[in-house]
Design a protein around this nucleic acid. Sequence first.
DNA 1: CTGAAAGCGCTTACAG
DNA 2: CTGAAAGCGCTTACAG
Lengths: 352, 352
Amino acid sequence: MKKAQKPRSRAPSKRTTLEDVATAAGVSVMTVSNVINGKHTGAVGSATLRRVEREIRRLKYRPHEIARTLRLARSSTIGMIIVHESRLFMASPFVALMVTGLTNSLTERGYSLIVQGVQPRDFVNAAVLRRVSNDGIVAHISGSDRERTGFQKLLKTTSTPIVIVQDHQLIKLPDCCVINQEDEVGGRLLAELVIKGGARKLIYFKPRPDWPGVVGRERGIRAVVAAHGAVSLALVTTDDEGFAASQRSLRQYFDRHGMPDAILSSNDHLAIAAMKLVQSMGLRVPEDIAITGFNDFEYRKYADPQITTVRSNAYEMGFQAGMQMVNRLTEGRFANTDIVLPVSLVPGGSTR
Amino acid sequence: MKKAQKPRSRAPSKRTTLEDVATAAGVSVMTVSNVINGKHTGAVGSATLRRVEREIRRLKYRPHEIARTLRLARSSTIGMIIVHESRLFMASPFVALMVTGLTNSLTERGYSLIVQGVQPRDFVNAAVLRRVSNDGIVAHISGSDRERTGFQKLLKTTSTPIVIVQDHQLIKLPDCCVINQEDEVGGRLLAELVIKGGARKLIYFKPRPDWPGVVGRERGIRAVVAAHGAVSLALVTTDDEGFAASQRSLRQYFDRHGMPDAILSSNDHLAIAAMKLVQSMGLRVPEDIAITGFNDFEYRKYADPQITTVRSNAYEMGFQAGMQMVNRLTEGRFANTDIVLPVSLVPGGSTR
DNA sequence: CTGAAAGCGCTTACAG
DNA sequence: CTGAAAGCGCTTACAG
């Protein structure tokens, strides 16, 4: 056998190769390759075709994706990199749903997804950047403007197509598409709602470090507040988005500055923590104080009253990211380099 | 230049290769390869080393992972396949946290993770199975015994190491490790607790289709119930785990069979839906009826009273899966083929 | 300490 | 309709 004659091969691979099938079917490897890739129309005779197909089944042949990738110079694999302070980067439903949408859209179109979460300080060493193995990169980056700019510079060095979700281009990226949602519109809708409900002293409650989505929501709120003379806005931040920790941050603010009329939170879980806190202090929601969130994930239904919020379509954002990337890869360029997904107000019982 | 002479190459790749670096540094590709892979001790002179390192930086060389993979016959990539009825396979915090733990443990050890969610009918076509590209597969499979057996047979055909999470071997898999948690113990603890609290008419409330974890919890409950003469157990299932749908299923049962003393739910979100329902019917929790959940994820804190539950460590389960897989790959065999993670009771206000 | 060459498993331009 | 051969970018056994 040929195998035995190769002096430099490792332990004989038990995997079936194209050559094994070709030998068994009595044809060349090229013919088998054509059959595998559906290029047999007019190129492979029907008797040959049947023979090859039989041997493929009999030998349980599976194409070696890696060899194909090397030859074609495309891996049909996309890398997703998620920069997150915490190691639990998919504990956030937003991220989990986005990744789900991304995998699904890629899978539908024959692509695979490699996911990696990195903490800011490990970004430089991310496998996605260090070694070339993906056809493109989808990035979800948080951190300060300076940090994110640095990350985008590193992404640029890969010279692969890039889709950035929930952020904008901070440097000129030649082959890049950004996908965002109307965070500013959402902030605006919520601010208008609570002001119409009579609130004058507003708080925007958000986590630190900042994150483009959180900042966008804040921008919308500020715009509305600026348009109303008698309305004030204060900022309360929390380093830890956990239930107890965020309540502590808020409590500290109350002790020093008194109670607001409304707490606009940058997401639903902060809103629920806020609501439970003020309720435990004997205040009524929404009569004494209005509360709003952002995102509208399933767990919003667990607290009473249900938080007024804005619906984010995180799954759709991931799905779009995958579609845009695949289109870029097949067409040669991004058809659209700046996509903004709509949001919608979801009124609940936590506002009047 | 050599590039220009290759008649059959595609458009000249702009990517820097080992050969480019070698030419620039005036050494052979082998020397560069040795430097890249840290095999220069005693094999590459220090002057040569410096020269090569300078050219690597200057040319921004990044190793081509795919070529390396083909040569070494290992991709350092693990595929994770998640079988789920819904396309939103990571909407479940259990799955999201497990995947997070898995990526993190793989990343730490230089491996990458490809994630794919498939609906049962698409399992056969999963990329992970059809093409060879991973060093191993981690599988999270749900469905009936018959379905899961079929899936395990397909996994077997890949002849790669397999880690199964939250299930057992249904067929003989020669190169496989299973990782579970003490679901049965958890069910037992909860059943004992509510019975001690005075409950006699119990319900186990679970989703359909069945899922090994859900079944394990039920087994624990049944064991305890069987040991108490006066205690009865009924089953209520829901096809849809959504808030409203699960309440409808439960409501239907109540209308036909009356109210139980305790509702043991197979997870926290079903428990919260159950609690909200009985509260809306004017009953008090835990005075009139006891409620328990399972998992103890963050959102458990959002409902009042807080659900009594059992803590699952989904992140750890994923992390272990990654560690076991990497050990298998480096050592040649699984050190441990049956791992069970501990659970613990987390008492809340929903039981006496 | 350094290099020339084989080969991993594919695909494709070319020749028959 | 079919085949022989080059080459994708690496690593490594072997020879100097």
